[in-house]
Write a protein that binds this DNA or RNA. Sequence first.
DNA 1: AATGAATGAGAATTCATTCAT
DNA 2: CATGAATGAATTCTCATTCAT
Lengths: 203, 203, 203, 203
Amino acid sequence: MSVTGRSRKQIILKEAARLFREKGYLASTLRELARRAGVQGGSIYHHFSSKQEILFVLMDNTMNDMIERLSTSIAELDSPLARLRHAIRLHIEYHIIGPDETYITEDELRNLESENYRRIIVQRDHYQQIFEEIIAEGKACLNWQVSDVKLLARAIIQMCAGVTRWYKPNDKFSIDEIAEQYFSLLLNGLKERGAEEKQTQPL
Amino acid sequence: MSVTGRSRKQIILKEAARLFREKGYLASTLRELARRAGVQGGSIYHHFSSKQEILFVLMDNTMNDMIERLSTSIAELDSPLARLRHAIRLHIEYHIIGPDETYITEDELRNLESENYRRIIVQRDHYQQIFEEIIAEGKACLNWQVSDVKLLARAIIQMCAGVTRWYKPNDKFSIDEIAEQYFSLLLNGLKERGAEEKQTQPL
Amino acid sequence: MSVTGRSRKQIILKEAARLFREKGYLASTLRELARRAGVQGGSIYHHFSSKQEILFVLMDNTMNDMIERLSTSIAELDSPLARLRHAIRLHIEYHIIGPDETYITEDELRNLESENYRRIIVQRDHYQQIFEEIIAEGKACLNWQVSDVKLLARAIIQMCAGVTRWYKPNDKFSIDEIAEQYFSLLLNGLKERGAEEKQTQPL
Amino acid sequence: MSVTGRSRKQIILKEAARLFREKGYLASTLRELARRAGVQGGSIYHHFSSKQEILFVLMDNTMNDMIERLSTSIAELDSPLARLRHAIRLHIEYHIIGPDETYITEDELRNLESENYRRIIVQRDHYQQIFEEIIAEGKACLNWQVSDVKLLARAIIQMCAGVTRWYKPNDKFSIDEIAEQYFSLLLNGLKERGAEEKQTQPL
DNA sequence: AATGAATGAGAATTCATTCAT
DNA sequence: CATGAATGAATTCTCATTCAT
């Protein structure tokens, strides 16, 4: 593999991520991708066997990367609290400044063909497990009020990933601030400490 | 417009909602829609001027409906707490068992042409405002710990809407249970009442 | 099915037969076919689901037709001799003036996809069987010198079908003459009646 | 040209013959050919200027070889009968176990570009002439019943070449047996010696 | 209102061929 | 000689849309 070869493939992937994020996988054409990557349409097929493969490689790389970074970075932290805070921050960061790939991974699952779909789902579950473990630990060690670990992990992941849907660069808040507010909300809830509980009668 | 005419149009809309939800707007073809609606391809154009129009009508109806229902139902409740709980429940319900149209509204924004996009965004903002108002009230009257109202409204909406991404019919939890857990998490947070705070040092 | 609809489909089939014969299936493009049939490229897909289907329909029709005609016409003849003569004449005629479809059926078997291939082979075998029956009868009733019925049927069929490979309209011989010479060769062989046999020593 | 060069070229030709026979010229890709020959796609162009040239060289070699072998081997035989028998045997053998090249020569004529086509046709005619000469001799010396020499030569050639269309290795008959049956059919015909002729009235 | 044949622009993909290394 | 990335034209096929009936 020549240097040009490798980087050309990387360029195509990078441009595909940008294009897919901008227009969505289905609305993106290989011609447009080729144009952006500075090659002819046919050339893409030197590096990938199909449009679908590009999508899959993009997602696969991203999931691997996310899992790798998350596992590595929380391994050093010694309390569930610190781990959760860090996981939330990383997750949000990944979805805001992170590569377009994260956005795609979130949104284009439906466009994966069955075998590819299965493989990505496996990784997504793996990623989610890391959150589940943190939560289970917090429940056990710090007496967190958790009625269902899986459900909570999902709620947190979706809430944070939702940032992609409204965050714009130059937003009023920095990533750190957003992360801290989300974390604080999750940890402490809305209700002021010491407030009376009388209003929570059943619906 | 004859009775048959009206109901045929409704059938097409209903089937479009199901089809778009199942395959996505771009992956859906008008031929398939026609087939499901029991007409020939060309006939759809007697009711709608384009595929795009179908999408827009679907979203527009849905947003109006969601706003209408939400406003109406919380108007009767007298505390921010009850209102938030109800709003969360309604939002989740809408996204799980609610009409396919809701799902579409969440996912197909990107496929709206510019003018249509603008109009739907206006409604989405309106819907979000209802949440913001509840939160602002809670902050004022019940001393909820909220550093930014808009950010919180978004977080809640995304977290709840995220349910669509994993919920499957026959899930271990009922919608009521999910709603209650989400609500409780938001209200009380993870941390046990009375637990010491020493671990929440800044990042 | 409107009159135009039916005839348009027939036109496409007819033009496909001419085109495929002229250039071969693989070398023929749907664009060219559309041009000849006087429609736009996409219109062909109203009538056929794929290029492959056109090929199959062509072959299927032809085989059905050949079998039908052959069975019907020899049914009236009362001796194996008359039947063989007629079968040979029909087979040759079919391959010379007969529709281009016969040529295609002969030459494009390899380009059928597996399921289609299987179905055409069944018909081809059926056609061949008619020859085998005639030969078997001749062997039984007229004491024809046949060491293997199947092998002979194939030899005759191939020899006659081979005409397509060299016959040009306005050839020195008419179809009747060619047919009669082939028939006579098969019946009587090269060797003069009464000639001595001494030269047929083993190879 | 180095030794490796020469043999590499031979390998490509050999593999091309196999590939073309298997899939047909048009359905074969140079990439596949390269793969089978153990080189990269581009390398083929060091040995041949185009795909078309490969086809032509293959056919040209084959025709030369067939003509050469046929002429040489029948030159030693002293009667038309022995020559015809031998020519038939060789022709059949060539088409069954003979090199894949023979098969191609039969089927890919249509895919030759005009100049190449003309050159191969010249050779094919030459090959056919050898048969014609044998037949003419048989007619003259042995009083064979031949109404048209050219027509008969074609009939024989096509009948024998037709074997390729049905023969499978491990067939019930050996090549020798098939050749002998064909020869016998041609020489003696179907009709039993001494049988009455009354049934051969004109069509 | 409904049909369904026809359109025509455009999509993904293939492949013989070129050429710098 | 060999490589393999790149080309670019061509191919099959799709689909929203139109329109005469």
